[in-house]
């Protein structure tokens, strides 16, 4: 003990120097922004890259679910907007833009009656003329085409489902823009048929079919389904393409009724032109 004390006293200058010097160095290292910044920055580059790539992947995997949630939220918001209230809502939202004229108006409605098992299926909506729904309007959901309004009363609308003998919707294969017609053969509610696609066109399973937008009723690029199979009947020049509907007709709830604001103009133009041609 005495020896240690003697040592400390003898070398106190040296020891105090070491003490202060190491204290300084500790302070220095703790506050050396340059060195610390270099180390932290290198770390951030690595971890940041890692995190962003992980989130890229997980984001992609979550897209479907996210879309669903957004669609649900959309309908809920539309529901809250007063559009959904049956009795009082007669006003509509109008946009008066000279550059982008609104062509389609969306009216949210609720399915209150629906069948899928018959040859000709119809859907009843809880809104009618009072809410601006009328004959020959498209009915869609966020996942795809549902049908066409065939009749409307004051407060209700009668919709011809795609699951109907009368259904003839102009469809388009997104990959090669080939136009065809969507029909339903009355068998399975999950599958429709695309016809009138020439047999020389190359198609593949999984290709998406959307509306062409040529019909005055449906806006373009509304999802119809994805190709499940395809074949050419003997002696025919056109494919028969069974495809899976993107809409589950058995679980319809909220739908959008689409009003084409230029429909009358388009139809009038077509009629007058045809009349001129016939003369």
């Amino acid at each position: 003990m005495r020896n240690i004390l003697a040592f400390i006293i003898r070398y106190n200058f040296m020891l105090i120097f070491i003490l202060f010097e190491s204290l300084s160095v500790v302070l220095l290292v703790n506050s050396m922004y340059y060195q610390r910044a270099v180390i932290q920055n290198a770390g951030n580059i690595v971890t940041g890259k890692f995190y962003s790539s992980v989130s890229n992947i997980s984001e992609y995997l979550k897209l479907r679910r996210t879309n669903e949630l957004l669609a649900i939220e959309n309908s809920l918001l539309r529901q809250m907007k007063g559009m959904s209230f049956l009795k009082t809502d007669t006003n509509s939202f109008w946009v008066n833009d000279t550059l982008y004229r609104q062509q389609y108006k969306y009216i949210v409605a609720r399915v209150i009656n629906n069948t899928v098992g018959k040859r000709n299926n119809f859907i009843m909506l809880n809104k009618g003329r009072r809410n601006g729904i009328d004959k020959d309007m498209a009915v869609i959901t966020s996942s795809g085409v549902v049908g066409t309004v065939v009749n409307a009363s004051e407060d209700f609308a009668w919709v011809m489902s795609v699951l109907n003998k009368q259904t003839k919707i102009s469809g388009r294969i997104t990959k090669n823009n080939q136009l065809g017609t969507v029909v339903w053969n009355g068998m399975d509610q999950r599958y429709g048929t695309l016809i009138d696609i020439p047999a020389h066109v190359k198609i593949a399973k999984g290709d998406a079919i959307v509306t062409s937008g040529f019909s005055y009723i449906f806006p373009a690029n509304i999802m119809l389904g994805t190709i499940q199979d395809f074949r050419v009947e003997q002696g025919e020049h056109f494919y028969v393409i069974p495809f899976k509907f993107s809409v589950d007709f058995n679980s319809l709830d909220y739908v959008y009724v689409v009003k084409n604001l230029f429909k009358k103009e388009q139809e009038t133009l077509e009629k007058t032109t045809e009349a001129q041609g016939n003369e």
């Binding site: 200058f13 120097f17 202060f20 010097e21 204290l23 300084s24 160095v25 500790v26 302070l27 220095l28 290292v29 703790n30 506050s31």
Partner: peptide, 15 residues
């Protein structure tokens, strides 16, 4: 704002 830098040099100088 350079904590420890001048302290280290000054202590060394005293030493």
């Amino acid at each position: 704002g350079t904590m420890g830098l001048h302290a280290a040099a000054a202590v060394f100088l005293g030493f």
